[in-house]
C-alpha cells in the first residue's frame, strides 16, 4: 500500500513539476478555467434576476446543484484525467498504452498517474465559491444527518463521474476515433444535473434515471438537503440512493 501511494505521488509529481515550468501559461490556464465556471454562473444570476425561479427553484437552490456538480466534476477531472476518453483514446491509438501494459505495475494506477492537470484547480475553486454562496444564502437547517450525508453525496458524485470517464475510456478500445458521444454522458450529465431534473422531457429523464442513474446523485439528495417537494413522485424514498448509484457506476 505504501509502495503504491509512493509510486502514485511520484508519477503525479512529475506532471506537476512539468506544468509549473511554464508559469505564465499555468496562471492564464487556471484563470481561464475558473472564468468558464464563473461566467456561466454570472449569466445564470442575470437570468434569474429576470425570471425568478425555474420549476420552483430559486437561484440559491440551483447554485447548490451547480456548485456541488462543478466541484465534484473538477475534483474527478483532476484525479481521473488519465481516463479522460479524449486523452485515453489518443494514448491507445499511439500505442502508448501498450508501453504501460508492459510495466510490472497495476495498469489502473499507471493510467491514473499518467495525467494530472493543475488547471482544474480553477474549476474546483469556483465551484466551492458558488456552493458557499448558495449555502450561505439558503440557511439550510443543518441536522447531524445532513452534515454527515453531504460528504457522502460528494464522494458519490466524484465516483459517478469517474466511473463514466472509465467507461468512456474503455470504449475507445473498440472505436477508432475518440468519440465525442461519451461527452453527452459526462459533460452533458454534469450540465443536466446542475438544474432540477423535473424540467426535462420524460424520455430524457427516464434515460438518466434507469440507464444512467444520474438523478439519484444530485436531484434527490438536493431535495433532501433543501427540504423541497418532489413533483416527479417516485414510489419510494430516493433521497439516500446517491452512494449506491455513484459507486455502482464506478
Amino acid at each position: 500500500m505504501r509502495y503504491i501511494f509512493g509510486l502514485y505521488w511520484r508519477l503525479i509529481g512529475v506532471q506537476i513539476r512539468s506544468q509549473v515550468q511554464y508559469r505564465f501559461n499555468l496562471f492564464t490556464d487556471v484563470l481561464a478555467t475558473a472564468l468558464v465556471t464563473i461566467t456561466v454562473f454570472i449569466s445564470l444570476a442575470f437570468i434569474f434576476e429576470r425570471f425568478g425561479t425555474i420549476a420552483g427553484w430559486n437561484l440559491s437552490e440551483v447554485a447548490f446543484l451547480y456548485g456541488m456538480v462543478e466541484t465534484a466534476f473538477g475534483v474527478m477531472d483532476m484525479l481521473f484525467s488519465g481516463f479522460d476518453p479524449q486523452n485515453f483514446g489518443r494514448q491507445v491509438r499511439l500505442g502508448r498504452l501498450d508501453q504501460l501494459l508492459l510495466r510490472p505495475v497495476n495498469i489502473t494506477l499507471q493510467v491514473l498517474g499518467s495525467e494530472f492537470i493543475i488547471r482544474r484547480v480553477g474549476r474546483i475553486f469556483q465551484g466551492i465559491i458558488i456552493l458557499t454562496f448558495s449555502v450561505h444564502s439558503l440557511q439550510i437547517d443543518w441536522s447531524i444527518m445532513k452534515m454527515s450525508y453531504l460528504p457522502i453525496v460528494f464522494a458519490s458524485l466524484v465516483a459517478f463521474f469517474g466511473g463514466l470517464f472509465i467507461i468512456g475510456a474503455t470504449i475507445t478500445f473498440w472505436t477508432l476515433e475518440s468519440i465525442e458521444v461519451i461527452n453527452i454522458l459526462t459533460y452533458g450529465g454534469a450540465e443536466m444535473m446542475s438544474y432540477p431534473m423535473s424540467i426535462y422531457p420524460l424520455g430524457m429523464r427516464r434515460f438518466f434515471t434507469y440507464v444512467i442513474p444520474a438523478i439519484f446523485l444530485m436531484y434527490y439528495p438536493a431535495i433532501y438537503f433543501l427540504d423541497k417537494g418532489d413533483p416527479l413522485g417516485l414510489p419510494f424514498n430516493a433521497n439516500f440512493f446517491a452512494p449506491i448509484a455513484g459507486f455502482g457506476v464506478f
Binding site: I47, F51, T53, I54, P196, S198, Y200
Partner: peptide
Amino acid sequence: SVLIGLYG
C-alpha cells in the same frame, strides 16, 4: 429544457 422551465 432549461429555457422552457424558466419561461413556465
